[in-house]
């Protein structure tokens, strides 16, 4: 159960990016967060696992306030939260297997991790996950030799390797071409559905959000302006979310309809 209360975050002395955000989910399904760039989607996700520290508010994960955690406690909380990144963020010079196994680093002691002495069951699970995302032939390939779509599959496997209780995905398909992007979305949706894993996913593509999400949340300037099921999301809502932003036309008339 994830609950966000009155979350405020600003960078430096600038305008706050999040202005008292409230949000909660207990559902084991996919929630899409939409909004223009700069609306605070990414900041919200990063606040949850404390890659970014919020200024004030509460983030309760199973009743524990993430903002109050330090040191080891924070590490233990983080391993329950999987994360997929827009730029994949694989460690380039490590192999695919090492990257997937790095999802277990919150569980193994320092020396064992440094020497790559992972328990056999972790290695088995990593292999099974790699097989599941269709990359078992690349186990010993260096991750910078993979294509973008393949890298993101490794990213998905790494996040699931944590055996997380919630999955965060920050624009997981934004760096991919449309076709690959669909396949990655499908993979995330199918795997998390099978695992009954709640997912919070930032998307810049509304059509994708409507297709895959069970719930859509719209952010604008750090405040939530829409929260509902995909079929409740109308053009009026989209205008509310995107008005005055560059993305408005693109989202209202997707896939080339706006061509002049």
């Amino acid at each position: 159960m994830l609950e966000i209360k009155d979350l405020v975050k600003s960078y430096g002395d600038g305008q706050p990016v999040l202005k008292g955000l409230n949000f909660s989910t207990g559902d084991k399904k996919l929630t899409a967060v939409i909004g223009s760039s700069g609306a605070g989607k990414s900041t919200m996700l990063r606040c949850i696992n404390r890659l970014v520290t919020a200024d004030s508010g509460e983030i309760l994960l199973d009743g524990v306030d993430m903002l109050k955690l330090r040191g080891k406690e924070l590490q233990y909380a983080r391993r329950k939260i999987g994360m997929i990144f827009q730029a994949y963020n694989l460690v380039d010079r490590l192999t695919v297997m090492e990257n997937v196994l790095s999802g277990r680093l919150g569980y193994v002691p320092f020396l064992k991790g440094a020497l790559r002495k992972f328990p056999q069951e972790d290695i088995d699970r990593a292999y099974q996950l790699l097989k599941r995302v269709g990359l078992s032939q690349y186990v010993n390939k260096r991750s910078d030799e993979l294509s973008g779509g393949e890298r993101q599959r490794v990213g998905v496997a790494r996040a699931l390797m944590q055996n997380p209780q919630i999955l965060l995905a920050d624009e997981p398909t934004a760096s991919l071409d449309p076709k690959t992007s669909e396949r990655i979305m499908e993979l995330i949706a199918r795997l998390t559905d099978e695992l009954h894993l709640p997912v919070l996913i930032n998307l810049h593509n509304v059509a994708q959000a409507k297709h895959y999400a069970a719930r859509i949340v719209g952010l604008r300037d750090g405040v939530m302006v829409f929260d509902g099921k995909p079929d409740e999301l109308t053009d009026e809502h989209l205008e509310l979310i995107y008005t005055g932003k560059d993305e408005l036309n693109e989202q209202l008339h997707p896939e080339g309809e706006s061509e002049e």
Partner: peptide, 26 residues
């Protein structure tokens, strides 16, 4: 690339593990 550090940090790894996994290889 700082993203690689963030990714390893997000798995719940400690400071020195992050150095070994995300900084050293780079």
């Amino acid at each position: 690339k700082y993203g690689q550090i963030e990714a390893i940090r997000a798995t719940g790894a400690g400071y020195f593990t992050i150095l070994i996994y995300a900084v050293f290889p780079q």
